[in-house]
Design a protein around this nucleic acid. Sequence first.
DNA 1: TATGAATGAGAATTCATTCAT
DNA 2: CATGAATGAATTCTCATTCAT
Lengths: 203, 203, 203, 203
Amino acid sequence: MKRNSDKYNRIIEAAVKVFARKGFYNAKVSEIAKEAKVADGTIYLYFQNKDDILISLFEVAMEKILRNMKGRLSRIEDPIKKIELFAAVHLELVEKSKDLAEVIQVEIRQSSKFMKEYRNDKFIDYLNLIADIVREGQAKGVFRKDIVPGIAKRAFFGALDEMSRYWVLSTRRSYSPQIAAEQISRIFVTGLIPHPDHPPEGE
Amino acid sequence: MKRNSDKYNRIIEAAVKVFARKGFYNAKVSEIAKEAKVADGTIYLYFQNKDDILISLFEVAMEKILRNMKGRLSRIEDPIKKIELFAAVHLELVEKSKDLAEVIQVEIRQSSKFMKEYRNDKFIDYLNLIADIVREGQAKGVFRKDIVPGIAKRAFFGALDEMSRYWVLSTRRSYSPQIAAEQISRIFVTGLIPHPDHPPEGE
Amino acid sequence: MKRNSDKYNRIIEAAVKVFARKGFYNAKVSEIAKEAKVADGTIYLYFQNKDDILISLFEVAMEKILRNMKGRLSRIEDPIKKIELFAAVHLELVEKSKDLAEVIQVEIRQSSKFMKEYRNDKFIDYLNLIADIVREGQAKGVFRKDIVPGIAKRAFFGALDEMSRYWVLSTRRSYSPQIAAEQISRIFVTGLIPHPDHPPEGE
Amino acid sequence: MKRNSDKYNRIIEAAVKVFARKGFYNAKVSEIAKEAKVADGTIYLYFQNKDDILISLFEVAMEKILRNMKGRLSRIEDPIKKIELFAAVHLELVEKSKDLAEVIQVEIRQSSKFMKEYRNDKFIDYLNLIADIVREGQAKGVFRKDIVPGIAKRAFFGALDEMSRYWVLSTRRSYSPQIAAEQISRIFVTGLIPHPDHPPEGE
DNA sequence: TATGAATGAGAATTCATTCAT
DNA sequence: CATGAATGAATTCTCATTCAT
């Protein structure tokens, strides 16, 4: 419904704030309404129910994130640089949109309800960007062929995601997104073992 | 509370099942009681409230997991083998205790409520097992020194954890725990780039 | 809360009936809702909780009683007649509003909870109407000066109140409010001992 | 059951404390048990249920109070002195046994439940001690005959009782029991109007 | 479209009472 | 007699959702 209305977006934005603050189950619809400066009932003109707010919020956000990431990746050739870019962009985004990151991280995943009943295509697409990079690297002979892209994508995403969770849930933050991104992509690209062809960067 | 009785454990086990099936917020205390074959009120002789069931469950489980993992790691010297073992043991455990894994994954680690309000020492200890391996490897000159253990531990754990989430939340399972563990530790140890000293697949 | 609606008053009136019938602790909120013909939840739009219903009920009633009593007393000069009037009005009110009287009598007083935690200003004001009459009488030389108004007010109110309790809690009623009021004020004004200047009234 | 057992009395005494502290409805049987240093179940060997504790407590106490008051009154001839004695003894007792007084006052006498359902003979006997004094005074020509003893007894008791309530529920206490007793009996005996034969203050 | 008062289903928790030991 | 772990009925209050205005 009316996805472009001003109120639709206000409600989404309000929901991001409230869900991040309270968590999905402890957030009240009336609180979102208040934050969005609309009446409680108005929310039900734009969303079917509370669940639908969360799902819509997620889809709208992932749509944007996905488009952005695709665009940025398309301008690069080197699979290694793509991996590095993915990490950097992902963690910057988390850094810039803390509330949104928290909701996506915590609330969407938490609801086994959603993850089980709801086919999370956008998220799968996002993961597959990584698998595509890996496959591309393998085709180009840059990446080793004994790594399964379907596992590598989860491993790489999981690594970034755990870093995000740490930022999102703890108040302090020991490492900058740049450093974290660089470290994580370095581990993935060259591994923990010293690599003759790839001496550590910047040293 | 009187932890002597077997009722305490029966309730914990019932809670694992019910939380895994329904999620924390959709699980009813009376359902846990029924599953544990005790009266509703009995639960409150052993736990302060619903939250306390979840937290206790987590602590009891992490205690055991932590002790087991420590024991297994202590019998190995080689940091590379330790990384491989960690991955294998972690994923086997998830495989063996699906319900428990799901509850820990989804309901506790993903819960803003619990992760924000409650100091999760056991989990931190678990993560630090990884940091310790990395540090040890660096000290022995086996691992590169430009990797920050505090980031590596999260990256490695996150990779395993995302793999688990996939198993736990999807019904099908494309890869065996053994293969996943082996792949993930390979990526971490040697990276995506072909490594002259470490040809693929243990040859 | 929105006191404009007639629902507020309907709930108060329903609560008076139900509390009188069952007592505060044995009254169910759902019963009050039913009696007021509103949904259970509606009560919580107008009152914070069950306690608040009782307190609000009390304040609303005392407000009215206090205003009425003040108005009636202000039209009289003679302190003796004021004492007589107070007794008459108080007991008539009890007679006319049995349920309300019972709730005020029994439920509010009973709750040590309420009487201890809740500063019962309206009731104190009501008592002080009596102290004022006594003081006025002493100033005018009509009442003896060796009586402490702060004790006399409690003695007089207590006498009326015990009479009320008797009516409210027993089903039968041996004496009319008029006779009781007249007897009690007579005792207070002239005492038990035959008084030369004040021969018994009406004989 | 076993009214003379040590435990019976310990439970009664514990109940007095707990009911005074929390009120009947907010008092927990287990709390009484704890205070009495017996097991929860033991209470049910001596009392049928929670109500029965309150009623028994009341009967035991009234029995004693009644016997004491009767004994003291029987040693005096003058009805005026008897009135004075009654007031003094009643208020002293309240003073000495605060908890007990509060429970009788607030929890029993103010309880619709108990006062409606339960025929309160001991209390009626106590009130009738006053009626008897009045009647005796009237027979001896000391008290005026136009006062109805059945009303006077409630008025006098109510006056004392309101004074007690004040002490019991407020923490401070403005007047000593002696002064209050003396004032209240003075009002009852001679009234508010200056009385030629009875100048103030016992002269 | 927008409102927000009203609804009422639903669930956690308490605690008097029981009964096996 | 005494215990206290276990029971489960019972009730307040919340909050997503509706619908008359």
